[in-house]
Design a protein around this nucleic acid. Structure first.
Lengths: 152, 152
DNA sequence: GTTATTTCCTTAACATGTTAATTGTTGCGA
DNA sequence: TCGCAACAATTAACATGTTAAGGAAATAAC
């Protein structure tokens, strides 16, 4: 049953119990070991996300890539240009609609994924171990409920 | 009972079920309405966080402020300078230890909090309503488990 | 007391987040 | 076909995230 928002108190929660701050801290806790792993390769966590998506789904247009890797278009423009210069991805224009473009991972980029995958998997397993399998799945489900974009 | 990490699979989860990406999307979903609210005042979400912490705990040194508002020192240096120019906070040196400094919210800054508090509270209430009170508390607890800094 | 170390804070450099304005294409309707 | 709305992508401008280096003040070691 839906609560009546008009009856909700108009005081803010303590910052120690704030959802936005809790999300930031959790993200920092999760990304810290991943960033540490990536620092040896010279790529950022966002570039890692792009590689992950491209490796999983293959060649795709920029809009889809931005959506799947949770990046805004301006960020992706810079990141893609950077990664293209480093040889991790290739960019090709759509001949049918020259506004659009496709991005694909290269062998060089795939090697980064392959080299880091075992350690990344161990990091993920560590968090599953910390929370427990059930809590881990519960957390993913609850987080998905906060992602309004996924409800369309 | 603790799982044996050496037995964990060495394959990465689908990006659709990735914890870092889920955290990013949840954060975006939560912050979107808050950012929309703040856009009218001209302050950013980080500046809002600083004001929230200062309003709740009062005058404090920079290190504590950075910790409570989950900001890195270099970011806080810029943000504090920016907010001081706009008259939202004041910075004073510690006479006993001239390396340290204290930051305090001004009346002008407090007014921002007061003006936005009701709407911010409604936004928070909306998310509690979306998840349900129990799930909301569960989520905060699970997120806290991922914040390694809080376990010291 | 002088030097080395530590601590607090700032600055620098580069990458990204965010919003708005701009450019280049496509497709559509007068 | 001309003009215009819609779309994809970029660029611009400013703020923040992140790491490393620098500077100033306090503290410890000698």
């Amino acid at each position: 049953m839906r609560h009546d928002l008009l009856l909700m108190p108009k005081t803010l929660p303590s910052t120690a119990r704030s959802l936005p701050i809790a999300l930031i801290r959790a993200r920092e806790g999760v990304m810290s070991p991943i960033r540490e792993m990536l620092s040896e390769t010279g790529i950022t966590e966002q570039q890692w996300r792009v590689l992950r998506v491209l490796a999983e789904y293959g060649r795709m247009d920029t809009k889809t890539l931005a959506d799947r890797s949770s990046l805004l278009f301006p960020s992706l423009t810079r990141i893609a240009a950077n990664m293209r210069e480093k040889g991790y991805v290739t960019q090709t224009r759509d001949h049918k609609d020259r506004r659009r473009q496709f991005i694909e991972i290269t062998q060089h980029g795939q090697k980064i994924i392959d080299d880091c995958a075992p350690q990344a998997a161990r990091i993920v397993a560590g968090f599953k171990d910390t929370l427990g399998e059930d809590n881990y799945e519960t957390l993913l489900d609850l987080l998905a409920m906060l992602d309004l974009g996924s409800q369309d």
